[in-house]
Design a protein around this nucleic acid. Structure first.
Length: 506
RNA sequence: GCCCCCAUAGUCUAGCGGCCCAGGACGUCACCCUUUCAAGGUGAAGAUCGCGGGUUCGAAUCCCGCUGGGGGUACCA
């Protein structure tokens, strides 16, 4: 069984496209191969629209799919027995096929200008008729065609759609759908610039590339009968069709920038793990048993069946994606894996050297320790710089001194408490020993007549610059005795500097 | 306007005639844990299965209509 993913390089890969690619990949490398069949996933670039072509988009698609974890068996970059896999390199093929249809009388040259087409449509709209091509050139005589040709008029090639009867398509997810031919149009197969439209190129390539199953977005379902008619005109067998449900935006309609990220590369940049995105996207339209939620790529390969893909459109839920991502960070990734993945984000923030993902690097142990403390509150890898900063730099970012003063405690008491902590550190307390540190600080709280929390909060703020952090003692341990000592001293100085105003305000 | 698709809680879904006065997950709320915040644990609220007709002893499940949402209606894919 052979499937294909056929994006057009008009921009970055949309999550909808990413999911279509995923389902194709899961079908070929999972379902097909499990059945002992040959399962090939073909990547084809459909760059037939010269106006919308974007220079580096193809590379961007390769990168996005590669990051996502999909591998293709045949494609522009790796070749294969049915190449070339880029449509702009196959234009003679399409022209030959268009000519063949003209010779068979199943396609014709249309010399109508865009202006005329527009005028016709407007008149139809004015008369409240369905807009569409009026088939003006469908019955031009051979001599008329010759005249136009010798006059050098530009033309497109249109398919001569049957005027009556019906066309049936079988969608694997929906069953049979019947279309009345009278409602179908004479679609353009070849544009005046000699490039094919999607319809021609797609049908020709899918056949020539021996594609057995077409799994594509739902937006193609209404042109499917035209494609089936085309297969028929060529005398080819129609591949199995399955239209994947659309992904909708939270408020309804298409998912666009307005709602948040839409491109695969954006999710990557925002610190989403490919396996979390894959898990989430797989469950948007597919389910295994309605109970299981967590599926590794291997699980998906093992469990995916096209049969269990739902035909109804699904709304993209950013909150649930975040949950999956946090879950993978916290419960699925190993610490070493997480540390390595977090480094690019930390490096971009200037917190560590980009080589720190190497276990042999001097910064690595610190990153790993910090990751161990913070993994339960990282929703995305991009949260890492902010949350891990205090462990990775000597100097703390400036913070509001009033944070040091806990509720129900005065500035002077807080000052006393911090001075006491400083003394404890000077007496040789080693924060590397969490148990000893906790015992000593709890004891200190008692000596000072404070609740543990009242002592812990000023320390936490002094050491991290914020009121929220992992457990205090592990935080101190990873921060290190020297930095702790410096930061306590800095906090004391800070409180003294702001003492006057704070005291009078108190 | 015309053609087509879809329709279970705010969201993703299980369900394919009786096991369902509907199960799981996200989100929400509460409680527990607790040095803060998370994470985790427990629990709760939330769906007259879009509406109306049928078919059937029996329907979320089958049929029809309606409504709603979505897609297409390009020399874009």
């Amino acid at each position: 069984m052979r499937v294909r993913f056929a994006p057009s390089p008009t921009g970055s890969l949309h999550v909808g496209g990413g999911r279509t690619a995923l389902f194709n990949w899961l079908f070929a490398h999972g379902e097909a191969r499990r059945q002992g069949k040959d399962g090939a996933f073909v990547l084809r670039i459909e760059d037939t629209d010269q106006k919308r072509f974007v220079q580096d988009a193809t590379q961007g698609i390769f990168d996005a799919l590669g990051w996502f974890g999909l591998t293709w068996d045949e494609g522009p970059d790796r070749g294969g027995p049915y190449g070339p896999y880029t449509q702009s390199e196959r234009t003679t093929l399409y022209r030959e096929h268009a000519d063949r249809l003209i010779a068979q009388g199943q396609a014709y040259r249309c010399f109508c200008t865009p202006e005329r087409l527009e005028r016709v449509r407007e008149e139809q709209r004015a008369r409240k008729q369905p807009p569409g091509y009026d088939r003006h050139c469908r019955n031009l005589s051979a001599t008329e065609v010759e005249e136009n040709l010798t006059a050098g008029k530009s033309f497109v090639v249109r398919f001569a759609t049957p005027l009556e009867g019906e066309t049936r398509i079988v969608d694997l997810l929906r069953g049979e759908i019947v279309y009345q031919n009278e409602n179908l149009e004479d679609l353009v197969l070849l544009k005046s610039d000699g490039f094919p439209t999607y319809h021609l190129a797609n049908v020709v390539d899918d056949h020539l590339m021996a594609i057995t199953h077409i799994m594509r977005g739902d937006e193609w379902i209404s042109t499917a009968p035209l494609h089936v008619l085309l297969y028929g005109a060529f005398g080819w067998e129609v591949p199995a069709l399955a239209h994947m449900p659309l992904i909708l935006a939270p408020g309804g309609g298409k998912l666009s920038k307005r709602h948040g990220s839409t491109a695969m590369e954006e999710f990557r940049a925002q610190g989403y793990l490919p396996e979390a995105l894959m898990n989430y996207l797989a469950l948007l339209g597919w389910s295994f048993d309605g109970q299981t939620e967590i599926f590794s790529p291997e699980d998906l390969l093992e469990k995916f069946t096209l049969e269990r893909v739902s035909p109804s459109p699904a709304t993209f839920d950013y909150a649930k994606l975040r949950w999956f991502n946090a879950h993978y960070i916290n419960h699925v990734l190993t610490l070493d894996d997480l540390a390595a993945r977090v480094v690019p984000f930390l490096a971009a923030a200037g917190l560590v050297d980009s080589g720190a993902s190497d276990p042999g690097h001097t910064d690595y142990p610190l990153v790993r320790d910090a990751a161990a403390l913070l993994k339960d509150r990282l929703e995305t890898l991009a949260d890492a710089p902010d949350l891990m900063r205090s462990f990775l730099q000597d100097e703390l970012e400036p913070y509001d001194p009033t944070l040091l003063v806990p509720k129900k405690l005065g500035v002077l008491e807080t000052l006393d408490a911090l001075v006491a902590v400083e003394r404890v550190l000077d007496d040789g307390l080693d924060v590397a020993d969490e148990v000893a540190t906790e015992a000593r600080l709890r004891g200190l709280a008692e000596e000072l007549g404070l609740k543990a929390g009242q002592l812990f909060m000023p320390i936490r703020v002094a050491v991290t610059g914020r009121t929220q952090s992992p457990g205090l003692f592990e935080t101190l341990r990873v921060t290190g005795t020297v930095r702790c000592r410096e930061r306590i001293a800095a906090a004391i100085a800070l409180l003294r500097d702001h003492g006057d105003e704070t005291l009078t305000a108190d």
